[in-house]
Amino acid sequence: MPESGSPELDAGSTRRTPPTIEEAARLILLEIAPADVRFLPLACADFFGNAVARRRAVRATLRGRERDQPTGFDAGEGMQLVLGVVLTLLNGVACEVLTGMATERVGRVRSRWQDRRRQRALTSATAPEGEHTRLPRLSAIEAAAIGRQAGEIVRQAGLPEEDAQRVNTLLAAALTGQGS
């Protein structure tokens, strides 16, 4: 098992082995929300250990907001913690749900229907080894498409454009084994 944040090199190749979900999440978080990194183990345990919590996190990510809860505070503050968003994306990539969808978006009507399908797929899919599941290694074209898709989901989740761009780049790099 490589150390966190340093995926091992493939033998005889300049490309590294694709990172695990946790490693990739750590890389992304270090870039866009360094303060969240210390909570990553807790979040991973909850995301992969509890189907209900995972479903709620995925739905909140795709909806772009958390559910309004009675007797809550709910000051309309928007997304403050990106752990759920990042884990949703990486779980989708690991389960190849995001991979399949990156090339399907055509037309508005179909896209809306696909959004629903994507939501269902993302909520039901779980990486087989949890946070230790390795992300697939993809070609540069496929990785770029997934990166764009991920960036769009990040945007949809309500995070700033700058974060969406970073996630796009980091994820694409990780999937092609270029990540640091």
């Binding site: 807790l42 979040a43 919590a53 809860q69 007797t71 709910d74 000051a75 913690l81 989740a157």
Partner: peptide, 13 residues
């Protein structure tokens, strides 16, 4: 504590 909720809020029940 809800570790996966993206907001900085709370709830009583």
């Amino acid at each position: 504590v809800a570790t996966l909720r993206a907001t900085a809020s709370g709830r009583t029940f």
